[in-house]
């Protein structure tokens, strides 16, 4: 199940774990990424907390935690090569995996049609 936030993150949810990244639209707005700082595995974050920091050639931005949960994996490949996020933001350029405190909360997020309308 693919979901989106108004802050331009995507979530691919399988059971109670969501893989999170930033959308194609976000990447187009940010420009070339040159630095990614990922959260620590085991960090417990609330919805809206700053989970990661990205720096593009232009500016720094936060990536927010889309729902309450615990970080169970991070994509170290993108800290080594941030351009992976630009090349494939919704695939190889994922940021972290979040074990959801409440899997039902996913229902509050945007589906693809609603997100496309938001950025359209």
């Amino acid at each position: 199940m693919l979901k989106f936030t108004e802050d331009h993150e995507w979530l691919r949810v399988q059971d109670e774990v969501a893989t999170v990244g930033i959308t194609q639209h976000a990447v187009e707005q940010l420009g070339d990424l040159v630095f990614v700082e990922l959260p620590k595995i085991g960090a417990v974050l609330g919805r809206g907390d700053a989970a990661a920091t990205v720096e593009s050639v232009k500016a720094a931005s936060e990536v927010y935690c889309p729902l309450d949960g615990e970080i169970v994996a991070v994509n170290d490949a993108i800290s080594g090569d941030p351009s992976l996020v630009n090349a494939d933001p919704e695939g190889q350029g994922w940021f972290f995996r979040l074990k959801l405190a409440d899997p039902n909360a996913v229902a509050r997020l945007l589906d693809k049609d609603a997100y496309d309308k938001l950025v359209g």
Binding site: G31, D32, V34, V57, S83, N86
Partner: peptide
């Protein structure tokens, strides 16, 4: 223009 389609890096 801050950038063209090629992007700042390229």
């Amino acid at each position: 223009p801050v950038q063209f389609p090629e992007g700042v890096m390229k």
